[in-house]
Computed example of a mutant assay.
Amino acid sequence: MAKTSVKARQKKRERMAAQYAEKRAALKAAGDYAALDKLPKNASPVRLKNRCQLTGRPKGYMRYFGISRVIFRDMALNGQIPGVKKASW
Protein backbone atom coordinates (compact mmCIF):
# COMPACT_ATOMS: atom_id res chain seq x y z
CA MET A 1 0.00 0.00 0.00
CA ALA A 2 1.33 3.40 -0.96
CA LYS A 3 1.86 6.14 1.57
CA THR A 4 -1.05 8.49 2.10
CA SER A 5 1.08 11.45 1.00
CA VAL A 6 1.84 9.79 -2.35
CA LYS A 7 -1.85 9.11 -2.98
CA ALA A 8 -2.74 12.69 -2.00
CA ARG A 9 -0.08 14.07 -4.34
CA GLN A 10 -1.51 12.01 -7.20
CA LYS A 11 -5.05 13.26 -6.51
CA LYS A 12 -3.76 16.85 -6.49
CA ARG A 13 -2.08 16.33 -9.86
CA GLU A 14 -5.28 14.85 -11.31
CA ARG A 15 -7.30 17.85 -10.12
CA MET A 16 -4.79 20.35 -11.50
CA ALA A 17 -4.53 18.58 -14.87
CA ALA A 18 -8.32 18.67 -15.21
CA GLN A 19 -8.48 22.30 -14.08
CA TYR A 20 -5.91 23.54 -16.61
CA ALA A 21 -6.83 21.22 -19.50
CA GLU A 22 -8.79 23.79 -21.51
CA LYS A 23 -6.23 26.53 -20.92
CA ARG A 24 -3.36 24.23 -21.96
CA ALA A 25 -5.19 23.22 -25.13
CA ALA A 26 -5.86 26.86 -26.05
CA LEU A 27 -2.25 27.89 -25.43
CA LYS A 28 -0.93 24.94 -27.43
CA ALA A 29 -3.25 25.74 -30.34
CA ALA A 30 -2.09 29.37 -30.28
CA GLY A 31 1.55 28.28 -30.09
CA ASP A 32 2.18 30.38 -26.97
CA TYR A 33 4.87 28.22 -25.37
CA ALA A 34 6.10 30.99 -23.07
CA ALA A 35 2.69 31.07 -21.37
CA LEU A 36 2.66 27.24 -21.21
CA ASP A 37 5.93 27.37 -19.27
CA LYS A 38 4.32 29.63 -16.68
CA LEU A 39 1.58 27.13 -15.84
CA PRO A 40 2.17 24.95 -12.75
CA LYS A 41 4.24 21.82 -13.34
CA ASN A 42 1.55 19.60 -11.86
CA ALA A 43 -0.96 20.91 -14.40
CA SER A 44 0.71 18.80 -17.08
CA PRO A 45 -1.03 15.47 -17.76
CA VAL A 46 2.37 13.88 -18.44
CA ARG A 47 3.12 13.98 -14.71
CA LEU A 48 0.17 11.68 -13.92
CA LYS A 49 0.95 8.06 -13.05
CA ASN A 50 -1.56 5.24 -13.28
CA ARG A 51 -2.15 4.07 -9.71
CA CYS A 52 -4.56 1.65 -8.09
CA GLN A 53 -7.64 3.51 -6.86
CA LEU A 54 -7.76 1.48 -3.64
CA THR A 55 -4.14 1.02 -2.60
CA GLY A 56 -2.15 3.49 -4.68
CA ARG A 57 0.11 0.74 -6.05
CA PRO A 58 1.87 2.04 -9.20
CA LYS A 59 2.88 -1.32 -10.70
CA GLY A 60 0.60 -4.00 -12.09
CA TYR A 61 -2.14 -1.47 -12.91
CA MET A 62 -5.09 -2.76 -14.93
CA ARG A 63 -6.39 0.20 -16.92
CA TYR A 64 -9.83 -1.27 -17.67
CA PHE A 65 -10.66 -1.71 -13.98
CA GLY A 66 -8.51 1.06 -12.48
CA ILE A 67 -7.00 -1.22 -9.85
CA SER A 68 -3.82 -3.24 -9.42
CA ARG A 69 -3.55 -6.91 -10.29
CA VAL A 70 -3.30 -7.89 -6.61
CA ILE A 71 -6.56 -6.18 -5.65
CA PHE A 72 -8.20 -7.37 -8.87
CA ARG A 73 -7.42 -10.99 -8.00
CA ASP A 74 -8.76 -10.66 -4.46
CA MET A 75 -11.94 -8.96 -5.62
CA ALA A 76 -12.50 -11.44 -8.46
CA LEU A 77 -12.07 -14.46 -6.18
CA ASN A 78 -14.51 -12.93 -3.66
CA GLY A 79 -17.06 -12.29 -6.43
CA GLN A 80 -16.95 -8.50 -6.06
CA ILE A 81 -16.35 -7.81 -9.76
CA PRO A 82 -19.42 -8.66 -11.87
CA GLY A 83 -18.82 -10.92 -14.84
CA VAL A 84 -15.34 -12.01 -13.76
CA LYS A 85 -14.62 -15.52 -12.57
CA LYS A 86 -11.60 -17.77 -12.38
CA ALA A 87 -10.94 -19.69 -15.54
CA SER A 88 -10.79 -23.47 -15.46
CA TRP A 89 -10.47 -26.00 -18.29
Rank of each mutant, 00 (worst) to 15 (best):
M16S: 08
K12C: 06
R13I: 03
A8K: 14
N42C: 06
D74V: 05
I67N: 01
K85T: 12
M1P: 03
Y33P: 08
K59C: 05
D32Y: 14
G66Y: 00
Q53E: 10
A25W: 03
K41S: 13
R9D: 12
R63T: 15
D37F: 11
G56F: 01
R73F: 05
L48N: 04
T55P: 02
K38T: 13
L77D: 12
L27A: 04
P58W: 06
R47D: 05
K49G: 02
Y33M: 14
R47Y: 07
L39K: 00
S5V: 11
G56S: 04
F65Q: 07
G83R: 05
R51A: 08
A34V: 14
P40L: 10
V84Y: 04
K28Y: 11
A30I: 11
K85R: 13
D32F: 11
D37A: 15
L54P: 01
N50Q: 15
E22N: 08
K49C: 05
P82G: 05
K23G: 00
A26H: 07
V84E: 01
K86P: 01
R63I: 14
N78L: 14
E14S: 12
A21V: 01
L48E: 04
E14W: 09
M75G: 01
P82K: 11
R47Q: 09
K41T: 10
A17V: 11
M16I: 06
Q53C: 07
N78K: 15
A43H: 01
W89S: 14
Q80F: 12
V84R: 00
A29K: 15
V70R: 07
P58H: 00
K7H: 04
R73H: 07
I67F: 00
K41W: 08
K38F: 09
V70W: 02
A35M: 09
P58K: 00
P82R: 05
G66M: 10
G31L: 05
K59H: 08
R69D: 12
A8I: 09
A30G: 06
P45Y: 03
M1V: 03
D74K: 10
G60M: 03
T55S: 12
C52M: 01
A21Q: 08
M75P: 02
A17E: 02
Q53D: 10
G79D: 06
A34P: 11
